[in-house]
Amino acid sequence: MAADAGARGEELNEGRRHLGALILAAGASTRLGQPKQMVRWNGETLVERAVRIAREAGAETVLVVLGAHHEQIFPILQPYQPELRILLNQRWAEGMGTSIALGAAVAERHSVDDLLVLTCDQVAVTAQHLRDLVAASHREHVVASTYAGRRGVPALFPEFSFHALQRLSGDRGARDLLQHEDVVHLPLPGGELDIDTPEDLEQLTAPGVSEPDTRAILGP
Rank of each mutant, 00 (worst) to 15 (best):
T98S: 13
A101L: 07
L102K: 03
A104Y: 08
A105P: 03
A105N: 10
E108D: 14
S111V: 07
S111F: 15
S111C: 09
S111A: 13
V112S: 12
D113T: 11
D113C: 10
L115P: 08
L115R: 05
V117R: 10
T119S: 13
C120L: 07
D121C: 09
A124V: 07
A124Y: 10
A124P: 08
A127P: 01
A127F: 03
A127S: 12
A127T: 03
Q128L: 10
H129G: 04
H129I: 00
H129P: 07
H129V: 06
L130R: 01
R131F: 02
L133Y: 07
V134L: 09
V134M: 08
V134A: 09
V134K: 10
A135F: 00
A136V: 01
S137V: 00
H138W: 14
H138T: 14
H138F: 15
R139P: 05
E140T: 15
H141W: 15
V142C: 07
V142Y: 02
S145Y: 13
S145A: 15
T146K: 07
Y147P: 13
Y147N: 11
A148R: 14
A148E: 15
R150I: 05
R151T: 05
G152T: 14
G152R: 07
P154H: 02
A155Q: 05
L156S: 11
F157I: 10
